[in-house]
Design a protein around this nucleic acid. Structure first.
Lengths: 141, 141
DNA sequence: ACATATTGTTACCCTAAAAGAAACAATATC
DNA sequence: GATATTGTTTCTTTTAGGGTAACAATATGT
């Protein structure tokens, strides 16, 4: 859709699909049709989730995907880290002008600010579990 | 550099340059050389800061830029809002599959999650003023 | 009045990241 | 051994961000 990374959002969708509970034999194609994205792309994200230990996948005929842990033991931060999503804001990376004190002192300062903001963002993510997400989806529909 | 938006980071740099205090007759070209970006791009960001009332600019010969308010009365959130930086994470925008409850209930849920994370991120930004930023730059150099 | 130096805005191009898509390898089931 | 799945690679397409230049708008100074 855009040049913005939506993998975190999609990953939450996938996890919610797996944890929703209607069926237990869900394939990447099923998930792809729920997300409305191409199966290949979904499998790429699913593979990350699998490597992070959030999802158990089974290859071969009648292969399926399942949550590796109970939904209330998975936070949004777990998912965020699994897909290796980009930071909340990017820092420009121009070479510092050695004559300019602002240019020289900028990098350490902005890194510090970014880190603080990032941590605060991630803390919010730990406050919501996949179980919460699923509950809210069921409520909203 | 990347497909990520660095205008927020650059805007902080510009504001710090204006508030640093070495000179009061700073032009967009001066700022551009400090940031190491092209003047035109800097002016585009500067223009946003001006429209947001954070910077006073003067056109014409010997035109300059100045902070419109004291640095301790400007927070990072002011700057963030001025440049209209992107949200902390993007939500995928595929059409919902009407047959799938997860697909249908997903949007309101993720919007809620995003809003919470966004607010928490922005609160962190209010905790740091431009004066803090400048102090830290001076300390670091 | 006119030349000049600045900000403000627009338009266009280039690049890099994200996503779509297809092909194929690896693997398990029947 | 046929088949259906996940896993991985590769290529293409799309899109947003940024680089750049040109010019409009505006104020200063001579």
């Amino acid at each position: 859709m855009s040049a913005n990374n939506t993998q975190f959002s999609i990953a939450i969708h996938l996890m919610a699909g797996l944890g929703y509970g209607v069926r237990s034999d869900i394939t990447s194609t099923d998930l792809a049709s729920s997300v409305n994205a191409c199966p290949s792309f979904v499998r790429r994200i699913l593979s990350k989730l699998s490597k992070a230990g959030l999802v158990r996948t089974m290859r071969g005929k009648s292969g399926t995907c399942q949550l590796a842990r109970p939904a209330d033991d998975i936070t949004l931060l777990d998912i965020y880290e699994a897909v290796d999503a980009p930071k909340v804001f990017a820092v420009h990376a121009y070479p510092a002008q050695s004559l300019c004190p602002v240019s020289c002192g900028f990098k350490p300062m902005i890194d510090h600010v970014l880190e603080k903001a990032q941590i605060s963002f991630e803390e919010t993510l730990t406050e919501t579990t996949l179980a919460d997400v699923i509950t809210e989806i069921k409520k909203g529909t």
